Amino acid sequence: MDALKSAGRALIRSPSLAKQSWGGGGRHRKLPENWTDTRETLLEGMLFSLKYLGMTLVEQPKGEELSAAAIKRIVATAKASGKKLQKVTLKVSPRGIILTDNLTNQLIENVSIYRISYCTADKMHDKVFAYIAQSQHNQSLECHAFLCTKRKMAQAVTLTVAQAFKVAFEFWQVSKEEKEKRDKASQEGGDVLGARQDCTPPLKSLVATGNLLDLEETAKAPLSTVSANTTNMDEVPRPQALSGSSVVWELDDGLDEAFSRLAQSRTNPQVLDTGLTAQDMHYAQCLSPVDWDKPDSSGTEQDDLFSF
């Protein structure tokens, strides 16, 4: 819950932080000083300027060897085509990944977070970031790969997607708890209302004896509580940590079903599988986004697919 609360507080303090972009060759504004600060901008989305290598189908939802083989196929196909790589912007948030063309600003792909089953910074092609997700059109699994400016960037994108998945799962947990509370309150309110109706004398007997209905007592009954809980029953509950912020979080049926399955089948359902080692994760978390744009010590960066 700490990640969720800190993310909400950060967004309320400075929503404009989320509009910064990394990996864009110096076009961005001043960047936060450390990885923790940038992680807090996830709610509205972190932007990464990358190059799209392509996509291939895979048979399993996750796995280092599986993704490595898929990336190898994608890279080989991209090299064989001889075409310049498409420059894209990857927007990562707890909602998922939005992929747009840098030149036309046209939407290429919009992947809900619950469809993503794996992401990684490839070991062999260490400047490549990739994720595996279920197609929104059918049940097939797709591996999408992107060329980053350097290994640090690939690791940073991988960690960002993993963190977005974690925050999304926490949102789901909060929403589920809130819905259970509202359902319980609604049920209790309905029981109270039913009890009051059972003990209320029939209207005919009131008229016969000349008694008047006590409207004041009726007004004191917990009807307002019942209506408050039943009027918006169809509205999706939102985490309290975000009250007053500009973010509107809505959970669709697909996300609810997917996270429910994860909660039942996995020990740590909030953790998205990645190909990063503990050492890689520690190294990337210690980086400032400013470091992502620094040239690798191995030599001059080449803006070309064939540089790796």
Rank of each mutant, 00 (worst) to 15 (best):
residue 223 L to H: 03
residue 17 L to H: 14
residue 216 E to Q: 07
residue 95 R to D: 05
residue 217 E to S: 04
residue 43 L to A: 15
residue 9 R to F: 13
residue 20 Q to W: 14
residue 4 L to G: 11
residue 246 S to I: 11
residue 247 V to H: 14
residue 246 S to N: 14
residue 77 T to F: 15
residue 271 V to P: 06
residue 117 S to L: 03
residue 226 V to L: 12
residue 16 S to Y: 09
residue 115 R to H: 04
residue 90 L to Q: 00
residue 254 G to K: 03
residue 17 L to V: 14
residue 33 E to G: 12
residue 213 L to D: 04
residue 168 A to K: 03
residue 62 K to Q: 10
residue 56 T to G: 04
residue 208 A to S: 13
residue 51 K to P: 00
residue 298 S to Q: 07
residue 5 K to S: 11
residue 163 Q to N: 15
residue 235 E to G: 12
residue 251 L to P: 14
residue 3 A to G: 10
residue 167 V to I: 13
residue 32 P to A: 15
residue 158 T to W: 06
residue 126 D to M: 00
residue 185 A to R: 15
residue 82 G to A: 13
residue 71 I to Q: 00
residue 92 V to Q: 00
residue 265 S to W: 02
residue 267 T to A: 10
residue 197 Q to S: 08
residue 94 P to Y: 02
residue 98 I to P: 00
residue 63 G to D: 11
residue 136 Q to T: 13
residue 246 S to A: 07
residue 121 A to H: 02
residue 40 E to H: 15
residue 304 D to R: 05
residue 53 L to I: 01
residue 78 A to T: 02
residue 284 A to V: 03
residue 235 E to S: 05
residue 77 T to C: 05
residue 201 P to I: 02
residue 31 L to T: 11
residue 112 S to K: 01
residue 108 I to R: 12
residue 20 Q to E: 12
residue 210 G to C: 10
residue 166 K to G: 08
residue 301 E to K: 12
residue 87 K to F: 10
residue 225 T to N: 14
residue 16 S to A: 08
residue 177 E to Y: 13
residue 231 T to I: 14
residue 152 K to W: 14
residue 76 A to S: 08
residue 168 A to Y: 03
residue 65 E to V: 13
residue 76 A to W: 02
residue 167 V to H: 11
residue 68 A to F: 03
residue 193 L to A: 04
residue 225 T to D: 04
residue 191 D to E: 08
residue 39 R to V: 05
residue 132 I to H: 01
residue 141 L to I: 15
residue 215 L to S: 09
residue 23 G to I: 02
residue 286 C to H: 11
residue 19 K to R: 15
residue 250 E to I: 08
residue 103 L to K: 03
residue 154 A to I: 01
residue 6 S to R: 13
residue 151 R to W: 02
residue 166 K to D: 03
residue 5 K to C: 07
residue 269 P to Y: 02
residue 280 D to V: 08
residue 12 I to R: 14
residue 64 E to P: 13
residue 224 S to H: 09
residue 64 E to N: 06
residue 296 D to V: 06
residue 68 A to C: 01
residue 26 G to E: 08
residue 92 V to A: 15
residue 139 Q to T: 12
residue 185 A to M: 11
residue 289 P to E: 08
residue 97 I to R: 00
residue 147 L to W: 00
residue 267 T to G: 05
residue 88 V to T: 05
residue 202 P to D: 09
residue 278 A to D: 06
residue 247 V to P: 14
residue 6 S to H: 13
residue 239 P to H: 12
residue 95 R to Y: 04
residue 291 D to Q: 05
residue 207 V to W: 01
residue 161 V to C: 05
residue 14 S to N: 10
residue 300 T to Y: 11
residue 232 N to L: 05
residue 17 L to C: 11
residue 125 H to V: 00
residue 174 V to S: 04
residue 212 L to R: 14
residue 8 G to E: 07
residue 248 V to R: 10
residue 288 S to G: 09
residue 212 L to N: 12
residue 17 L to K: 14
residue 95 R to S: 05
residue 60 Q to C: 08
residue 15 P to E: 11
residue 35 W to I: 11
residue 28 H to M: 15
residue 27 R to I: 13
residue 111 V to C: 07
residue 63 G to A: 15
residue 43 L to I: 15
residue 128 V to K: 00
residue 268 N to D: 09
residue 179 K to Y: 07
residue 250 E to P: 03
residue 41 T to N: 09
residue 243 S to E: 09
residue 243 S to Y: 07
residue 222 P to Q: 12
residue 127 K to S: 00
residue 147 L to S: 00
residue 141 L to F: 08
residue 253 D to V: 05
residue 206 L to R: 08
residue 98 I to C: 14
residue 244 G to N: 12
residue 102 N to W: 08
residue 189 G to I: 01
residue 289 P to F: 09
residue 253 D to L: 04
residue 47 L to D: 11
residue 211 N to I: 05
residue 187 Q to S: 02
residue 19 K to L: 13
residue 132 I to L: 03
residue 155 Q to R: 14
residue 5 K to T: 04
residue 200 T to M: 03
residue 166 K to C: 14
residue 87 K to Y: 14
residue 150 K to D: 08
residue 6 S to W: 10
residue 228 A to Q: 02
residue 283 Y to I: 08
residue 62 K to Y: 02
residue 151 R to Y: 06
residue 72 K to Q: 06
residue 109 E to Q: 05
residue 86 Q to S: 09
residue 215 L to R: 14
residue 217 E to I: 12
residue 161 V to W: 01
residue 146 F to R: 00
residue 230 T to M: 05
residue 266 R to A: 11
residue 112 S to H: 02
residue 179 K to I: 09
residue 55 M to V: 10
residue 153 M to C: 09
residue 243 S to K: 04
residue 282 H to M: 09
residue 223 L to R: 12
residue 160 T to I: 12
residue 158 T to N: 03
residue 248 V to K: 07
residue 17 L to M: 13
residue 126 D to T: 00
residue 157 V to E: 00
residue 221 A to Q: 07
residue 193 L to I: 03
residue 183 D to T: 11
residue 226 V to N: 10
residue 31 L to G: 14
residue 208 A to W: 02
residue 185 A to D: 13
residue 175 S to H: 12
